[in-house]
Simulated scan of single mutants.
Amino acid sequence: MKKKLLAVALIGALAVSSLSGCGKKAANAKGKDKKEETKTIKIAATPIPHAEILNEAKKILKDKGYELKVTEFEDYVQPNEVVESGEYDANYFQHVPYLDSFNDEKGTHLVDAGDIHYEPFGIYPGKKKSLDDVEKGDRIAIPNDTTNEARALLLLEANGLIKLKEGAGLTATVNDIEENPKEIKFDELESAQVARVVGEDEFVVLNGNYALEAGYVVSKDALAYEASDSEAAKTYVNIIAVKEGNENNEGIKELVKVLKSDEIKKFINDKYEGAVIPFE
């Protein structure tokens, strides 16, 4: 009996505890009472601007005792799946309407842990360079996921190209177009693919990050875009998303604090020239 009790005590003494997501205590080989923790935050992100911003934040977090490991994804599905599974602690690529839609469709349990920045949605030239040149049968490429398609259609409506059914709002699809006087044809594509048909369609409507990847600056290249003080800025702010229950994790809170710091705001403003706007 004494041997069993001794074995249990030894196992308990050697166990290393860990919090969900953000790090493990380093082993204390020399038997000191305490040793500084090594804390790791694994985050999934789309490349531009999210991974770029995170890599800038990585420098600040290192000074605060955190190692930020950033993995880039090219789509909008896997970053949520790896956070839901617990493989990653957080992701940075989406806004709340998309997150809510994803949760509803996939049965996931992701929540907003911090509002970081806003990317104006824009209409960009393709084969034509002015919205004044729209003719019957012209083609416009738009994202095909629920929230971003609605956002694109609302922007087109705001610029007089179509009229949506009353109340269509943030769930609008092409089926909700009530008036289309120019008989515009819509190419509904996965968000990452829209910029690739610039040479094929008359116009494209792009998410801010994919516009950046395509080399566009919204303030210079967009034919029309959402105002920075609009309701869209509040609705479509890009967030740090985590699995429900992890939003108050110490590492996640520190990550959000750094991303909202003056240093990161300056980096965003200097680098993106209005294509990315820090959310206040």
Rank of each mutant, 00 (worst) to 15 (best):
R139L: 08
A150F: 06
G126N: 12
L154A: 09
D115F: 03
K127D: 04
E119M: 15
D115S: 15
L161Y: 02
A158K: 14
P143Q: 03
S130N: 14
I162H: 01
D115G: 05
V134R: 03
D138H: 11
H117Q: 11
I142Q: 08
Y124E: 13
T146F: 08
I142R: 04
L164N: 10
H117P: 02
L154F: 02
I123H: 02
K128C: 07
G160T: 15
I142T: 09
E119H: 01
N148V: 01
G160Y: 14
L161M: 14
K128P: 04
A158G: 12
Y118C: 08
L164Q: 10
K128M: 10
A141R: 01
P125I: 09
A150V: 07
L153M: 08
I162W: 00
H117S: 13
L161V: 08
K136L: 03
Y118E: 08
Y124I: 10
I142G: 09
R139H: 09
F121P: 00
I116K: 06
P120Y: 11
Y118Q: 03
K163Q: 14
P125V: 10
I123P: 02
L164H: 06
I142K: 05
L131I: 09
H117T: 04
I116F: 10
E135N: 04
I140W: 13
A141I: 01
I142L: 14
G122N: 10
R151M: 01
H117V: 11
E157N: 03
E149S: 09
K163S: 15
D115Y: 08
F121E: 02
L131C: 07
A152W: 03
K128N: 10
D132G: 15
P143K: 01
D138G: 06
I140R: 13
L154Y: 02
D145G: 03
K163F: 08
G122W: 02
S130F: 10
A150I: 05
D138A: 04
G122M: 11
N144W: 00
Y118M: 02
L131D: 04
G122Y: 03
I162Q: 01
S130C: 05
D133E: 15
E119D: 04
E157R: 05
Y118A: 05
G126H: 13
G137I: 11
G137W: 10
G126M: 12
D132F: 01
R151P: 00
Y118W: 08
R139F: 14
T146R: 11
K127P: 08
N144D: 14
F121L: 10
E135C: 00
G126K: 12
D115E: 14
L161K: 07
N144V: 05
E119N: 07
I140N: 12
N148I: 00
K163M: 12
Y124S: 10
R151W: 07
G126L: 09
I162L: 12
L164T: 09
E149P: 00
A152S: 15
D133L: 15
I123A: 03
N159E: 15
K136V: 13
G137A: 13
Y124W: 07
K163N: 11
E157M: 13
Y118H: 04
L155E: 08
A141N: 00
I123D: 03
I116Q: 06
K163R: 14
D115L: 09
K163C: 05
L161G: 04
D132E: 15
I116C: 11
I162F: 01
T147G: 06
K127W: 03
D132M: 00
A152V: 08
V134I: 15
P120C: 13
I162T: 01
Y118I: 10
N144E: 07
G160C: 14
